[in-house]
């Protein structure tokens, strides 16, 4: 048994991550192949050495200075969150007023356009009704009138 797949299987076995269906095969090879046994042993030893000697680093700043930096960043983050929250509240307040206002504006525009279209129809009718074809739809329920002219 050689190759990449085998080597990675052996590593997975050592790490306890090999799927159960492959374990027996790897164990058989380890028991019969000195090279495989050596590799498994090397992987185990390396893992133990590295895990038991995790590098340590000490913060180069004093307790007070380090905490003052952390505290300042916390305060900045909280101030940013507060500004965002205030902005969102203001936007929500504006939207509460703006939405109905936009609705009213839309109605005004529709009515205005409706009148303009009416005038256009009159204009078209007066300038040459024989060349124009028109169709009108009126919805009393919605309070709108649509003129289709071509």
């Amino acid at each position: 048994m050689n190759g990449k797949e085998w080597t990675l299987d052996l590593q997975a076995y050592v790490d306890g991550e090999l799927e159960p269906s492959r374990r027996a095969e790897v164990e058989r090879v380890i028991s019969s192949d000195a090279e495989a046994r050596e590799l498994a042993g090397a992987l185990r030893s390396l893992g133990e050495v590295v895990r038991s000697h995790e590098p340590s680093h000490r913060v180069p700043d004093s307790r007070e200075f380090y905490w003052s930096q952390v505290r300042r960043r916390i305060q900045q983050a909280e101030a940013t969150d507060s500004r965002r929250a205030a902005g969102a509240t203001r936007a929500a307040g504006w939207l509460r007023w703006l939405a109905p206002a936009l609705g009213v504006a839309a109605v005004v525009v529709v009515v205005f356009m409706n009148r303009r279209h009416g005038e256009a129809l009159v204009e078209v009718a007066s300038s040459g009704l024989e060349d124009a074809e028109g169709m009108t739809f009126r919805s009393d329920a919605d309070g709108i009138t649509v003129h289709w002219i071509r």
């Binding site: 050689n2 190759g3 080597t7 590799l39 042993g41 090397a42 992987l43 390396l46």
Partner: peptide, 8 residues
């Protein structure tokens, strides 16, 4: 992947 690994 080379199977050989320095012996630890």
């Amino acid at each position: 992947v080379e199977r050989h690994m320095p012996v630890v």
